[in-house]
């Protein structure tokens, strides 16, 4: 078996495992319910009288802050708790096969959840004439943001066998990643910090990159940002597993 086939075996088991517990159903229902609630009630989807999905996408980062950790917290913490980490680490897999396979399964799962919001797209197309390109890019941005948060969460999950700790750490980390680009925080800093620092901070924020994509602009730097965050945390994850596998 080559690395791709091994990763596929890990992916299949992991992806199926979501549907063997109530986790999948609970997650999908809550995600779809909240995504709709935010878009219609807080975002004023109808009141704006514009045929776009801004009110819908605008809340995704904040939804992901507490929903993504619920998916990622179990990735490694559960393997440690069950003792199955000893089993999978002694099967003929490489650490990278396991880390990437598990991450991709989690990402596929949250992407399925995101894809199930397609009625929003249909609704807005039926009511008006939205810019489909913009909506597609916004979906892509949302999927990438979810992936970046998952990579952070997978890494943090590998540091502990306690899922609650993994959840809280991930939620805080994702929150910080967003907050660095939140207008209120940046305005506060602008008062006294040098401009370079403020802009540097804003460019490390997932929110800045997400919002620029949400407007429908495909900038390679934004996509690269998300892919770099994912890659960096997966590499950290591999090191963490090698380093702490017996704890």
């Amino acid at each position: 078996m080559n690395a791709l086939q091994r990763t596929a075996v890990v992916f299949r088991r992991e992806f199926r495992s979501y549907f063997q517990t109530p986790l999948a159903a609970v997650f999908l229902v809550i995600f779809l319910f909240l995504a709709g609630l935010f878009a219609f009630n807080i975002g004023g989807f109808y009141d704006r009288n514009q045929s776009d999905l801004r009110p819908f996408f605008q809340f995704h980062p904040w939804l992901y802050v507490f929903l993504v950790p619920a998916v990622s917290m179990r990735l490694w913490a559960e393997e440690r708790r069950n003792g199955t980490i000893e089993l999978i680490m002694t099967l003929p897999f490489g650490v990278a096969d396991l880390v990437i396979g598990k991450f991709l399964a989690a990402w596929a799962f949250t992407t399925v959840a995101l894809a199930l919001t397609f009625p929003m797209w249909i609704t807005v197309s039926w009511l008006g004439t939205p810019d489909h390109g913009t909506i597609f890019v916004a979906y892509l941005a949302s999927a990438l943001l979810g992936g970046a948060f998952l990579a952070v969460g997978a890494f943090l999950s590998s540091l502990t066998k306690n899922q609650v700790i993994a959840f809280v750490l991930c939620a805080v980390a994702c929150f910080v990643l967003l907050l660095a680009g939140f207008p209120a925080v940046l305005d506060f800093l602008r008062g006294w910090a040098p401009r370079g620092v403020v802009e540097g901070l804003a460019s490390t924020s997932a929110l800045t990159h997400y919002e620029s994509m949400m407007r429908g602009v495909i900038d390679l730097r934004d996509i690269l940002y998300f892919l770099l965050v994912i890659a960096a945390f997966l590499v950290l994850n591999i090191f963490a597993i090698d380093w702490k596998k017996s704890d």
């Binding site: 088991r13 495992s17 063997q20 069950n82 003792g83 000893e86 099967l91 003929p92």
Partner: peptide, 20 residues
């Protein structure tokens, strides 16, 4: 990876995935 193909291993406590 090649070395791990040569053996079968029963870890202490026989762990497996509880939901499978």
């Amino acid at each position: 990876i090649r070395a791990k193909r040569t053996f079968g291993y029963l870890p202490e406590g026989a762990p497996a995935y509880p939901d499978m």
